[in-house]
Nucleic acid binder design. Sequence first.
DNA 1: GGGATCTCTGTAAGCGCTTTCATCGGGTCC
DNA 2: GGACCCGATGAAAGCGCTTACAGAGATCCC
Lengths: 361, 361
Amino acid sequence: MKALTEIPQAPGRIGRIGRAGRTGRAGRSDTIYEVAQQAGVSIATVSRVMRGTAGVAPDTRERVLRSVSDLRYTPSRSARSLAEGRHAASGIVFPDLSGPYFAEVVLGYEEVAAETGRSVLILTTHGREAARERVLDLAARVDGMVVLGRTVGDDVLAELVSKGLPLVVLARYPVEGADSVNAANEASAYALTTHLARDHGHRSFAFLGDAGASTDTSDRWRGFTQALADCGVPVPSAPVPCPFDEDDGRAAAERLLVDRPPRALVCANDEIALGAITAAEALGLRVPDDLAITGWDDLMAARHSRPGLTTVSQPMRALGALAAHRLHERVAGDRNEPRHEVLPTQLVQRASCGHHPEENR
Amino acid sequence: MKALTEIPQAPGRIGRIGRAGRTGRAGRSDTIYEVAQQAGVSIATVSRVMRGTAGVAPDTRERVLRSVSDLRYTPSRSARSLAEGRHAASGIVFPDLSGPYFAEVVLGYEEVAAETGRSVLILTTHGREAARERVLDLAARVDGMVVLGRTVGDDVLAELVSKGLPLVVLARYPVEGADSVNAANEASAYALTTHLARDHGHRSFAFLGDAGASTDTSDRWRGFTQALADCGVPVPSAPVPCPFDEDDGRAAAERLLVDRPPRALVCANDEIALGAITAAEALGLRVPDDLAITGWDDLMAARHSRPGLTTVSQPMRALGALAAHRLHERVAGDRNEPRHEVLPTQLVQRASCGHHPEENR
DNA sequence: GGGATCTCTGTAAGCGCTTTCATCGGGTCC
DNA sequence: GGACCCGATGAAAGCGCTTACAGAGATCCC
């Protein structure tokens, strides 16, 4: 074994002289230098052991590992990131919209990201304030990023792409240089609307939701109008504007139903739909006898509401997981040409869209 | 203005010679050196401008800012963290338990963390696999951490504390050296159970949930038994074991109800309770006439279920937000003595616990 | 008018790692 | 027995920042 002197390894590392020994102060985290010293090896060897790089003699490795566990050494992540030029982390950006939707997407995402050895940073943009800055800050902490729906403008995304940051958008129209993952909104809207018009024979429709607010909603509106046109049913000129939560849905539905109630009300998500059911009942309308109502997302509450809410089930976890996989491929450099994927959804028929004589419940 | 030579600033920085100019390659992120060079100043000045440190002449600042925006420069986060010795990030660790509960807590947390200028890293421990390693890895990336319920053992938490990492536990019993934030589980269990026994006169009870699975549940069990004892009602010897989700609740309730149905069933959360309602109805029991059922959390579905579910509303966002505040104080060094806080909950009476003659609905 | 003070800027060390390259001490090979 | 190779290790540069310290002018005061 070589003798250890107090002379620092690198000429420039003068500061080391003063802090060679452990202070023993609680909270002071050890560095690779302390481990190396305790094990009687150089920091290079410690690094090799920590990273599992080949070419360390078994007994040396053993000695280093002992010091590591003695000192409870954990490498500094920032130092490692700086030296490696990567973060081993990825980010996911979503609007506030608290509902279960985003939670599920994030969970699906996190699970896969953890498998691929990446930490996950989350960022909610709530409305607007400083979203650009926050996203750019996040971008500096990760190797790649998933951006959901209404969070920041395409200009910001373009900026990220131009910095060379791997990017996947989710529930949002593709942007140049990024992958995209979406649910089959237009198709499911078409199927849902056709079911209402053809199977139940409804002839007067309204669509509740803000088509400008998200690409999901605008795709649903498109599928909705297309289906009506194909069924020869009058097409409303525009959606009835309505934000995303239950109270908004109730308020908007109340105004609409007092005014000129349609026979069927297609809502952009379950929360709006549940609010609309409450509003309809308050006005003395029976659902589905007087008014059919449908939602989107198949929340837990849709299953338990009275009447059960007909809705569209989306593979939320799968969306998150797929986004994570695509991002991983990008980061790993496995692929360069962009991929745009659309996951299938499923129509969930319950009582709120009308009676199904042949089905139970 | 000083002349800029190709001689590197620091003697050790020899590598700089070869890469002084921008390559222009897309995806290559600029460094402080490029900005300094373009603005004709030293990197120290650029750093001062970026951080808003006082003492930079207005026109110099102007020039630097122009270069920064020309080059779309974003400082390297790892380099900054390494130099500053901090991450400007904090972590939150939770079990898988996907329900809305955790999502809300995390959102409340993230909001506050963002306000205090910290990024948020999330980690779910799903079950158990490698939880310790994952948590320690996370610990190396953050300045402080919040740990929820059933995730890792107290030994791991102690290890974090001994490393000097500021720590807050949430929905979990306090550990030495960490703050804690909890909801008033025992008190709300006591109030809920008393309501069932005293106001509705129920005399035969069961508790559905795994008391060993989380401190929340075990506190609820404790408040439950205490209330029964105080009301002179027979106390079950143990909870009826049951995991956390709806299917589990249904299955466990089915077994229980066939066997020896109680008059009132207190469930450890809403999902179990909703499953139990389904089971009861399938067995031909009317809720609440034959069987009273209650939950916890006041999920959206509790409000929409039929009958409406009597439950306990917990301030989930507030719990997350409070944890973030306490963590911030710790990280900022504003406080050293630990704080343990309990947030009040609210009993939400709906139809599932029995008829309330004097109340509507 | 000359030292004291202030303002602005640059120099260089240091943060804790990774990794290239050089070195060293044995075997191996004919 | 010398040329060679190979495995194990260490020295040192470099990742991109922050910041203590020093220096250069400009300003001030008596």
